[in-house]
Design a binder for these strands. Structure first.
Lengths: 241, 241
DNA sequence: GGCATGTTGTGAAAAAATTCACAGATACCA
DNA sequence: TGGTATCTGTGAATTTTTTCACAACATGCC
């Protein structure tokens, strides 16, 4: 493992591995092999091992990976081992969903401030926060020191917001607006596009199904070696996301 | 262009091209070259041409692409040329954001029914709709005939929901729950994970900035040949997503 | 110890995706 | 008409990512 750049797909999968590992720890599983990960995540065992190999050696041949240890390693790699304050711009429905998203805290992400440009909303409570005037973005972030921001405003406002964020010292942006942001090279942007996702789904509907229904039993190709407790199903009314 | 399977990244980019084309049409632009697309989308001209080549020949050498014509072609490819009813499961904050998402309609996606398992919510209005009992999923979809569904429930409920959706005849699922769904091979699933996106951002914060700030002027490397109208900025209070 | 079983880490091979580079087509102008 | 400039479509080259396959290591059992 020398000084290679890590592929983005690898980073994306790392978050999946972490989720699986946390579930396993919850279930009291001390050790997992790469094949266990494959079964639990749908990502191939070889892929998993290769992904980890970019960062070092974490497993023990013949045994597997210590759940606890690997969790800690991945959290360190992804910088999930420290509190990460974030700025949210756009106090609409999506913003509300993000502010209320319960899983953020488990990964030490915290929305530290919400901004909007609608003077009717400014000053109103929003989750635990008060909606701030977008004009005060730089000022507020001077206190917070967030490096990550989430853009949840309409496309026509997104570029301007991005520029304000960059000015406020933001180095990474999660952009939900359907537009291509132009930012300086030291700012990293990831776009989330619901329409893009739906479009890809839609395309696949058009294709002839390559897989027939024959032979599908509804049973998962599971290995009976592990107790079912790992995949225990919580069966109760549970709040939607 | 023979019978090749289309790469998924190509499909994802198609939605981006479409967005750019719609903006251009709105601005009255009749024709676009692949380099225009590159400037507007950030995706390279060669990539754009290669992507289209999977589906046929749409441009005119020396001229470019007819905005209107290419829009129609991409909409046909992505099956965006017909009404597409969808089922939404999970009437939480995220569900609310999706039901209220304005851009769906422009692409002929329509959330036709919302389901939840929380008896307190069932029967209550949700956007234009009434929240239905998840138990009636199959029954309701017998009327609607949706092929696409969106899962916006917590991870521990997602697998069960997926199975009910499959039973109700759904063929494509957009999954917001942080879990790996097991579905029959004729069902196509795409996962959206906010945590995954944030984790990748977080990782990049850790990396040494490869790009120094030197030479960044804030100016985009734009070509002055086209009128600014195309990138006209709407400057007003606009509702967040 | 010796052997059977199971697992990792990783070069090498394969597959997939992107970029290059250019022939050929179109438009425009003098 | 010929010359110049522009732009597409695509085979080939390149780069990136995934998969394969196996040596080396660990464990448990007799």
């Amino acid at each position: 493992m020398t000084e290679t750049r890590v592929p983005t797909p690898t980073l994306e999968r790392l978050a999946t591995y972490l989720r699986v590992l946390l579930d396993a720890r919850e279930a009291g599983v001390q050790t997992l092999s790469s094949r266990d990960i494959e079964r639990l995540s749908g990502i191939s065992a070889a892929q998993f091992r290769k992904d980890l190999s970019y960062f070092g050696e974490f497993g023990k041949p013949g045994v597997g990976y210590s759940t606890q240890q690997l969790i800690e390693c991945i959290e360190r790699i992804l910088r999930l081992d420290r509190e990460q304050p974030m700025l949210l711009v756009g106090a609409g429905n999506l913003g509300a969903a993000l502010v209320g998203y319960p899983n953020f805290r488990a990964h030490r992400f915290r929305i530290a401030a919400v901004f909007d440009n609608n003077f009717v909303k400014i000053g109103r409570p929003f989750g635990d926060l008060i909606i701030e005037d977008i004009a005060r973005l730089k000022e507020v972030n001077a206190q917070i020191g967030a490096q990550i921001a989430i853009i949840a405003v309409p496309a026509n406002a997104a570029q301007e917001v991005a520029e304000q964020l960059v000015d406020a010292g933001i180095r990474a942006i999660l952009n939900f607006a359907p537009t291509s942001l132009k930012v300086p090279p030291w700012v990293y942007v990831r776009n989330v596009s619901f329409l893009q996702e739906l479009a890809v789904l839609s395309y696949h509907l058009a294709q002839e199904p390559k897989h027939s229904r024959d032979g599908w039993t509804g049973e998962l190709p599971s290995e009976p070696t592990r107790p079912a407790s790992l995949a225990a199903r919580v069966k109760e009314t549970s709040d939607a996301i």
